[in-house]
Amino acid sequence: MRELDELQQDALGEIFNIGVGRAAGALSQIVHSEIELSVPQVELVPINQVRSTLSGGEFLHFSSVSQSFSGPFDAEAVLIFPEANALVIVSHMLGTHLSPEELSEYEQEAMCEVGNIILNACISVLADLFHVEFNGGLPKHRFSDRDGLGFESDYDAEFVLLLKVSMKINQANVVGHLLFLLGVQSLEALFDCLEKYLIEQGLR
């Protein structure tokens, strides 16, 4: 299977860091309090290993927001948080204290918007730097558990670009993951775009 070399890994990490940085700015404006977002590591893993990568103790129940993108490569982009962390995010943003049972449409829409802002920001940085265009779909929110991440079956993906995201809001530190689900051809196309970018920048 393809692997990311050190420079590719570093470049992708930096691109997504710029994306989440922009998203943090937009989110801070909406909720009127400072939000920090960062993406520490980028990994490329086969889709059947995603579950074990995410299967830390806190990752029993998930809250995820997914959006599909099509362009030079197609991807399902997913922002995923352990359910408890997702609650921390919406309750800080909406100023409420809720249990999972109390989560309604209202919070799910808010969570969708948060995911939409983060995912759009990442994709638009990719599009800017690679000089390409994507078509973005609307975000979907869902709850799932470890036994079914919920998105594998919808999508004919084989690889996942996996990024750990940490989000700081009002002192609370929340960790989740950003996943880009890619088919074989899309993965190749992503590598092509990335190589073109590195060459264009004189880094290869």
């Binding site: 570093d10 930096e14 920048q201 004189g202 880094l203």
Partner: peptide, 11 residues
């Protein structure tokens, strides 16, 4: 912390 960024600035 990104080598890519350092290389871009350096270039």
């Amino acid at each position: 912390d990104s080598r890519t960024s350092r290389m871009l600035i350096r270039g």
